[in-house]
C-alpha cells in the first residue's frame, strides 16, 4: 500500500484529503506543522509527500530546503499545495524540486487524486 505523508495544518482539509485518499487505498500519515513533518519523514519513509506551503513553525518552502539537504529524502516526490501563489512562489517550488503543484481552490479532490496517481500509481 503506497504511503503518503500529508503535511497540512487545517483540520477540515486534512479530513477531506484523508477520506478521499484512504478510500483509494493509500496509507495516510498526517503532520500538522513543518517540524513535525520533517521528523515523520524519517519514521515512515513515505512514497509521496503532499505539502502545504502555509504551515506553522516551518513553512513548506523551508521543509523542502531541509529535505534537499539529504540526498535520500530528496528522492521522495513532493506535490505542493498552495492557497494563493504568485509566479514567484511557483518558481520557487519548482526550483526546490517539487514534482507537481496545485492551488487548493482550483481543483477538486478527484483532480488531486489524479495528480497523486500520476506520481506513485495506485
Amino acid at each position: 500500500m503506497p504511503k503518503i505523508l500529508l503535511m497540512e495544518d487545517e483540520e477540515i482539509i486534512i479530513g477531506l484529503l484523508q477520506k478521499k485518499l484512504d478510500k483509494e487505498g493509500y496509507e495516510i500519515s498526517v503532520a500538522r506543522d513543518g517540524e513535525e513533518g520533517l521528523n515523520m519523514i524519517k519514521e515512515i519513509w513515505p512514497d509521496l509527500i503532499l505539502l502545504d506551503i502555509n504551515m506553522p513553525k516551518m513553512e513548506g518552502f523551508r521543509v523542502m530546503e531541509e529535505i534537499n539537504k539529504n540526498p535520500t529524502l530528496q528522492r521522495i516526490p513532493i506535490i505542493v499545495m498552495f492557497d494563493s501563489p504568485d509566479s514567484v512562489d511557483l518558481k520557487r517550488a519548482q526550483a526546490l524540486g517539487a514534482k507537481d503543484w496545485f492551488v487548493k481552490t482550483e481543483l477538486n479532490l478527484q483532480q488531486i487524486l489524479n495528480k497523486v496517481v500520476e506520481q506513485i500509481g495506485r
Binding site: I13, K20, N108
Partner: peptide
C-alpha cells in the same frame, strides 16, 4: 482577509464536490 478566506473556501468546495459525487 482574502488569504484567510481561501482555506475555508477550498474546504467548502471539496466537501460539496464530495457530496455531489455521492462519496
Amino acid at each position: 482577509a482574502a488569504h484567510q478566506l481561501r482555506t475555508p473556501l477550498s474546504a467548502i468546495k471539496w466537501t460539496l464536490r464530495m457530496l455531489l459525487d455521492g462519496d
